[in-house]
Design a protein around this nucleic acid. Structure first.
Lengths: 244, 244
DNA sequence: TACAAATATGTACTTACAACACATTAATTA
DNA sequence: TAATTAATGTGTTGTAAGTACATATTTGTA
């Protein structure tokens, strides 16, 4: 029961009491990383016959004694072993027919992790990182979930300093720009990009240089500590006056 | 069972089988309207003893055969009788202890309706419109839900033409500005506000004038039809390139 | 007929955005 | 060791939007 939502239909049919207590509750995690200049997502092969050969997101049913946030954190930890992750709730998918084995509503979270600092665990069912842009079809409604989370990531990425969770501690501006380009699927002008980042005032110049690059090394930067926000919850307190 | 989530503890204790099928699923609606220059929200008195004298949002358990979106739409319709409403999912609240009678997770929706075009129905338990800014405390975690939805509304209001769902078909720029001010809790400069709205190009000049106002009447406008988006879902397709 | 109260509009300053070009540095190669 | 290559690192200019601020106009009312 640790991967995906794998309830046999029989299992579901056994249970049928009050109408209000046979909706199963799950979470699904869209876990992003950045590797080889590509945005990737953690996927696993579905057990269900209906979806043989399709990949699904990492998910599980929520336990009776755990918060929704905790459940998604548990899944992430079980698979990546990481303790300190960026995790944000995005949307809850609750169509009646979204799961072939019964009524299951699922809350989607997206997560950003540094590929270098994790090793996948419980790597059964072909658990692996898959380039986001190659994914055309997934099991269940997981493609829609992925798209929704990717869109949320795109919305957030210029407004809030979340992208740095995908990078190692030290990075060059080129690396940062390439990451933005991978997420947004656009090409950016280097000079304008640097200006924009400079205005945000998110970075500290480390006075160090890249090493082992086959060209002129760039300066290294890190995120200012005050922006390291590995929150579990969507913050609900931006009161910025949106108009003049 | 139509208002709030009112399960007696006994009812809940009867049911206790597989761990995964005794989480109840509900929706809660933050239904906003605009009346007497105030942003108001529809509230109802809670049945639970724990929360006597506190108000709660309109909510209900989700039925086995209805989509999550449909459930929130049903609640809205039951109370306001309105068919064509703006409704958007915001966040799912799933703390273990958020409901005193048992494990209930709830998905919050916010909705915008024109106060003039509805009549409240099933007005038991002191169902009424309450000014948002006067609400300090609510039953359950409903104050947090309200805050989260209000913040979402504030985020959306300048980016997307959703605010017009709170206004009658025809309105003056002053009315529109007052509504923005009520939602954002700011004072806006009239000249800059008009410029900003003009740039958006959301409005049609109706070549009509306000009537029955005790001062010089203003022009009336309406929203361009192509922006009347009474969507049920958060759109998941803004691919705007966020950077140069 | 004067007054009060709101509508309607314009200008100057500042800041962000977008398109674009050149000098500099380090590694590689001839 | 000098020339080449491929990246880094900046600066300028035009355009659009944001902000602060003032005056003339229209209507209802006293």
């Amino acid at each position: 029961m640790a991967k995906g939502i794998n309830l046999k239909t029989a299992e579901l049919e056994k249970i049928s009491h009050l109408d209000y207590f046979n909706i199963a509750v799950s979470v699904d995690c869209v876990i992003f990383c950045y590797e080889n200049k590509e945005l990737k997502v953690l996927v696993i092969k579905s057990d269900l016959e209906e979806f043989s050969n399709l990949y699904s997101l990492l998910g599980d049913l929520v336990r009776l004694d755990e918060d929704l946030d905790t459940a998604s954190y548990r899944i992430l930890q079980e698979r990546t072993g990481m303790e300190d992750v960026y995790l944000e709730q995005v949307h809850t998918f609750g169509s009646v027919d979204r799961h072939p084995s019964g009524r299951v509503i699922t809350t989607a979270y997206y997560s950003l992790i540094d590929a270098k600092h994790q090793k996948l665990r419980l790597t059964n069912n072909d658990l692996h990182w898959h380039p986001v842009k190659n994914i055309k079809k997934m099991a269940f409604d997981h493609k829609a979930i992925l798209d929704t989370c990717l869109n949320r990531l795109r919305e957030q990425v210029m407004e809030h300093p979340v992208i740095f969770n995908l990078l190692p501690e030290k990075f060059s501006l080129r690396e940062l720009q390439e990451l933005y380009e991978a997420i947004l699927s656009v090409e950016l002008d280097r000079r304008n990009f640097r200006k924009k980042i400079a205005i945000k005032d998110w970075l500290v110049d480390l006075n160090e240089m890249e090493e082992d690059v086959p060209h002129r090394p760039g300066k290294l930067y890190k995120l200012k500590p005050e922006f390291k926000r590995k929150t579990l919850r969507r913050k609900s307190s931006n009161q910025r006056p949106l108009v003049a």
